[in-house]
Amino acid sequence: MSWFTKTFSSTIGRKIIMSITGLFLCSFLVVHLIGNLQLFKDDGGAAFNLYSYFMANNIVIRIMEIVLVAGFVFHIYDAIVLTRKNKAARPIDYAEQRPQDNSTWSSRNMGLLGTVILVFLIIHLWNFFVPARFGGLEGVVIDDVEYENLYIRVVESFQIWWYVLIYVISMIALAYHLIHGFQSAFQTLGLDHKKYTPFIQKFGYAFSVLVCLGFAIIPIYFFFFFR
């Protein structure tokens, strides 16, 4: 192994990858959320469909898509490797444990939360991304040009109660994942300072709650107010 692969296959190195990819995925969430806000525009989905067309066809976005996939893959792969290593580090568990006395629930359950998010991601991609990218959506004409109508897929999907429920639960899981993950990522990179860490922690908390709330409002909005 070269020094490079050795560095990033050490426990600290893998955590560094986890934190960098994690923060990158956080930035993706922001972009994704801003784009999605166009769903609320009262134009029959025109703006949203134009936006989704742009996202599917712009060359820069297509390249970033590959980076994004890589970010997910590394984040998930290292999570699995580390979780297995962590389990192996304690083959026999304690008969009695009181971890609630020394740490937060979310910090101890990042793997569980991550798994929930992964399952959600698969459902989400299958329902929206796959048809949008590989075809299977109805057409819609905007300004004399035919586009794929992703908007109507969103509207229809969020009329199903259990679908909305999955989304809301998943966003709660994501929020908890981020509440620990966001500030933890900074620590893992050694970015810790008396002056700035308290801000990072508060910002991370607000970020996690607001972003996830923003995502969760979409299905709720369509379910209750858009019939």
Binding site: S10, T11, K15, A88, N102, T188
Partner: peptide, 22 residues
């Protein structure tokens, strides 16, 4: 020291803070 820590089979740090608390 970090290399030896990994060789000994300790797990990775998830920043739970349990160590410092205890």
């Amino acid at each position: 020291m970090v290399a030896q820590m990994d060789i000994e089979g300790f797990g990775a740090c998830t920043n739970t803070g349990a160590c410092a608390a205890e």
